[in-house]
Design a protein around this nucleic acid. Structure first.
Length: 291
DNA sequence: AATGCTTTATACT
DNA sequence: AGTATAAAGCATT
């Protein structure tokens, strides 16, 4: 019991710590290297070199960031393991949510509730809406957070390239955007720094189909994965898996709308708007968290 | 008409 | 059996 408490405290500190954010860039490097060379099953030494550190330091760095060793972490990302988890998740989630998804009462249980822009706002790309945005460090790298009085309307990771802001401007080209980190900082803190973040509102702009898909994503608890096809089944479009893929790809609220929990039915992880390495990183951590 | 964070079906090692 | 290639399928731009 005491160890559990201690562990939770460590986790909280770890997520809050700016160190985790700094660590990510190097962890990502190693993951990239792994994607290119997984055939050779690189050992710790090789992996460490790819992140420009010694084996000893890399082990420490990685464990500090992920909470488990690199070796263990990688086990969660194999095809076999992912396929197995895919099956497990489906058997649990189908039973729990399949009927609930069509019932309107279902949303109340969620921490995250979604609101859609009005048809007029959709047409005008957000005319009359004021958006505050800011950049903040997280354990997945720097994020761009965009909020309105009606909820969060954007959350992305752009590794400092500026692509995120460009996309935000494009998507909400009718809205008024103001950089205001003092508004977004406490919200970013709330999202990433604590385990349970209470109620969070999202303001979404998308087609009916996209809205349905994004809503379905909210039903996947952390530590679970489902296939693109399964999402299609949930929204009554079992054969539209590819369209589901593109819809998920246009989700502009990373992490909170957990599009990283959708993978290919083969157990391959599939694509990710913010980089496949980041998808692996998020999944690895979540899958490690409950098993 | 082309394009994608897919999935199956089929044809080959 | 496992892997490469084709074809099917579907919302969006």
């Amino acid at each position: 019991m005491a160890t559990v408490v201690a562990f939770c405290r460590v986790m909280t500190l770890q997520m809050k710590s700016p160190q985790a954010a700094l660590d990510y860039a190097r962890v990502e490097k190693a993951i990239h290297y792994l994607q290119r060379n997984f055939l050779e099953q690189p050992d710790l030494e090789t992996l460490a070199r790819s992140a420009n550190t010694s084996a000893y330091h890399f082990q420490r760095l990685f464990s500090r960031w992920a909470g488990i060793s690199p070796k263990k972490f990688l086990r969660y990302l194999t095809c076999d393991f992912a396929q197995q988890r895919l099956r497990e998740s489906r058997s649990v989630l189908d039973a729990t949510f399949e009927s609930g998804l069509s019932s309107p009462g279902r949303l109340h249980d969620l921490l995250v509730s979604i609101h859609a822009v009005t048809p007029g706002e959709y047409k005008s790309h957000g005319k009359g809406i004021e958006i505050s945005y800011g950049f903040h460090p997280t354990r997945w790298g720097r994020c761009l957070l965009a909020v309105t009085t009606r909820g969060i309307c954007g959350l992305s990771f752009d590794d400092g390239t500026g692509a995120g802001l460009q996309e935000l401007r494009q998507k909400w080209r009718g809205a008024k955007l103001v950089e205001n980190p003092s508004v977004t900082a406490p919200i970013a803190e709330k999202i990433f720094a604590t385990r349970r973040h209470g109620k969070i509102d999202l303001l979404l702009m998308g087609t009916n189909f996209q809205l349905k898909v994004w809503e379905a994503l909210l039903k996947i608890p952390a530590g679970n994965v489902v296939s693109y096809r399964t999402i299609g089944e949930w929204i009554g479009r079992s054969t539209a898996s590819r369209a589901v893929g593109t819809a998920i790809g246009s989700n502009s609220i990373a992490y909170l709308i957990p599009c990283h929990r959708v993978i290919r039915s083969t157990g391959m992880l599939g694509g990710f708007r913010w980089g496949t390495a980041r998808k692996q990183a998020m999944l690895g951590c979540e899958l490690a968290g409950r098993s």
